[in-house]
């Protein structure tokens, strides 16, 4: 069977781009947040394929957002591309350093240690008056590719387009990577790390590499979020934010690069309605959904999708 994932991804991106022209404001917002979260979870599923669940990816989400957001107040520049580049650079650098430690850990130790690192950032940011402490600060974009934002007829739509572009590139590259020999080793590591070493591959290096990729994706998600929402605060690094990413990861499953975006979209849709109609039962709904998924769909919603797709093809 021919792999049509690239076509689906590109099709969906173009479709969204057109839809953005006619969708109401709230729907564009919903789609934007879903794309950002989807990009972050895209990195999370790479780790899940290695058998690792990070309870601290809020660290990179937050770092990416702050890297993008602090450019203007501290360096006087807020060109969108530079903001994104700063986020990528900073998250890659931090993940590269922390990776030397984290790559030695598995299971709950990996989960807890990554949680600890995200809480360190939370602790630092919430006490830093220059960065707005717990209130955070607002993020402004001045130019996109040198063109002042005010020159665009509909700046919101342009930013939406860039978010789609960012998610599209991430998704395409990730799919390519997962299909490569190196990418496939992730699952082998989850299955039997010892054997992978005994076949001659370096498990630590592969995990380290994948960790950096997943961190950069979270950084991109964070930067895009900062740009789209216009506000950032240390809560982005709080462990419950990472918990949301874990939730979407489990909900979506790691079967396809499309799954994270689907999962994020479902998550965000339910969240926006739940906030409106029943703010005090929203988490309960998440919890119950999570239990149902763990028990009945251990490979996430995507496995359900894949099954249906297979049936239709037969």
């Amino acid at each position: 069977m021919k792999d049509q994932t690239y076509t689906y991804i590109t099709g969906a991106a173009i479709f969204l781009l057109f839809l953005g022209q006619v969708m109401p404001k709230w729907a564009v917002f919903l789609a934007t947040v879903s794309l950002c979260y989807g990009t972050i979870v895209l990195g999370m599923i790479l780790l899940v394929r290695n058998g690792l669940v990070s309870f601290g990816h809020g660290l990179y989400y937050c770092l990416g957002a702050y890297a993008a957001g602090t450019l203007r107040p501290f360096w006087g520049n807020s060109e969108l591309l530079v903001m994104l580049a700063a986020a990528i650079f900073l998250t890659a650098a931090v993940a590269f350093i922390l990776g030397f430690l984290l790559r030695k850990y598995r299971d709950i130790f990996f989960a807890m240690l990554s949680l600890a690192f995200s809480m360190i950032l939370y602790g630092l940011l919430s006490k830093n008056a220059a960065l707005g402490s717990t209130d955070g600060f607002n993020v402004y974009v001045d130019t996109i590719l040198g063109v002042p934002l005010t020159d665009f007829e509909d700046p919101r739509y342009v930013i939406f387009g860039i978010t789609i572009l960012g998610a599209w590139i991430s998704c395409m590259l990730m799919h390519r990577y997962l299909k490569s020999d190196k990418g496939k080793l992730a699952e082998a590591i989850r299955d039997n790390e010892l054997r992978v070493e005994y076949l001659g591959a370096n498990v630590s290096t592969i995990i380290h590499f994948n960790y950096v990729i997943s961190a950069v994706l979270a950084g991109i998600g964070g930067a895009l979020m900062a740009i789209s929402i216009g506000h950032i605060d240390p809560e982005m690094s709080y462990w419950t934010t990472s918990g949301e990413f874990v939730f979407i990861t489990i909900l979506a499953g790691s079967g396809s690069v499309i799954a994270p975006f689907l999962g994020a979209f479902i998550f965000e849709t339910i969240r926006s309605f739940a906030y409106e109609y029943s703010p005090n039962t929203w988490q309960m709904l998440l919890g119950i959904t999570m239990l149902v998924v763990i028990v009945f769909l251990p490979n996430g919603l995507w496995s359900l999708f894949a099954k249906i797709h297979k049936k239709i093809n037969q």
Binding site: V53, F55, I108, G243, Q283, M284, L291, I294
Partner: peptide, 30 residues
Amino acid sequence: LLRFMYGRDEIVLVLVTYALFLILEDVIKI
């Protein structure tokens, strides 16, 4: 809840208790 989960991966058990955490947080709010 938990007794149905014994024997599963430790990380799955963490996720189960995380789900429980989310549920109980809202029970408290209610």
